[in-house]
Write a protein that binds this DNA or RNA. Structure first.
Ligand code: ZN
Ligand code: ZN
Ligand code: ZN
Ligand code: ZN
Lengths: 166, 166
DNA sequence: TAATCAATGTAATAAAATAACAAGTCAACC
DNA sequence: GGTTGACTTGTTATTTTATTACATTGATTA
């Protein structure tokens, strides 16, 4: 259980991604075992696919990969595995992209905000608990109770900015 | 140009919606005239439809209405009008709903956050400039530059909470 | 007027998501 | 071991959302 709690740029910056993946998988196994939820082969493989890179994958992209490996070839196969992962906090849905990404902080509590690079498509997950709190207060004043919050920022990562992408 | 700059709950609370609509339309006309952009009949009618209520409308819902009134009946008709309104800051796209809503603060600068009631589907648009700033700083530290920010909160409005909706 | 560009319209298709149902797997219980 | 019942996987079919490509109309301007 390595503690490489780095900043938002972690995903964009070069890092030991092997470990990144391995850690996430291990945490997933533990968390699911604790909840008595089953990390079946399709589900596990789906999580592995999402963990391959710090990018979001569309459901059909996931499906294609799964089908090629002998799993079912119809949309529900992918959608169900993805939904399972989301339900258990192991993946997130990116509303702006119609896509899914592995959660990079599965151990801590969840109020994620995403930084999405419009050039390289990589994304970083940054803690947004305080954002939720602040917006929550403001809403509370108006009688609105926040249950779930989506925060997605599209922009340019350091690497792509340097590479001179417009 | 009435100044009823009320809080986030404005949309949820009872108010003079006639004026709400009229003001928004007037602002739209002025802003577009200033930019030499044309508020053609379809576009104008689309904006009126969005302004009917403080709810988001799907593109096909808009299309159905437009078609019934003699406008084109194919998807691009609605999508183009909606995109035009979004481009000019007169409407917003709700990512979580695959839908569009009229902008309620078309006069001020834009970094909107939305509060969406999961029961009555009404939505409020609250200023989120400070959220953008805060997240922007955090991202900047990691070399990421935010260009566009989506903030959408799903929850329960005061009315629906009182009405005892689970 | 002719050329040009924006706006509208249609048909066709793509992309994303869900509904409905059949069959298989697995653990708990008898 | 066999049976029940919940969960999981699979398929077919359909729905919902969005875009591409192209023809036509309408305004603008040289
Ligand atoms: Zn990594
Ligand atoms: Zn990038
Ligand atoms: Zn109103
Ligand atoms: Zn409500």
């Amino acid at each position: 259980m390595t503690q490489e709690r780095t900043g938002a740029g972690a995903a964009f910056a070069p890092h030991d991604h092997q470990r990144c993946q391995a850690d996430a998988l291990q945490v997933a196994e533990q968390r699911l075992a604790a909840k008595k939820a089953r990390l079946t082969p399709v589900r596990r493989r789906t999580l592995e696919l999402l963990l391959e890179s710090h990018r979001a994958m569309g459901a059909y992209e996931v499906l294609e990969r799964l089908a090629a490996e002998g799993y079912g070839s119809q949309p529900p196969v992918a959608y169900r595995a993805l939904e399972f992962l989301v339900q258990h906090g192991l993946a997130h849905r990116l509303q702006r992209l119609n896509a899914f990404a592995a959660c990079l902080h599965p151990e801590c509590e969840h109020a994620p905000a995403f930084l999405i690079c419009r050039v390289c498509s990589k994304l970083a997950e940054v803690p947004a608990g305080y954002l939720q709190d602040e917006l929550g207060e403001l809403s509370q004043d108006n009688g609105f109770t926040i249950e779930r919050l989506t925060v997605e920022a599209v922009g340019l990562c350091a690497g792509c900015a340097k590479a001179g992408a417009a």
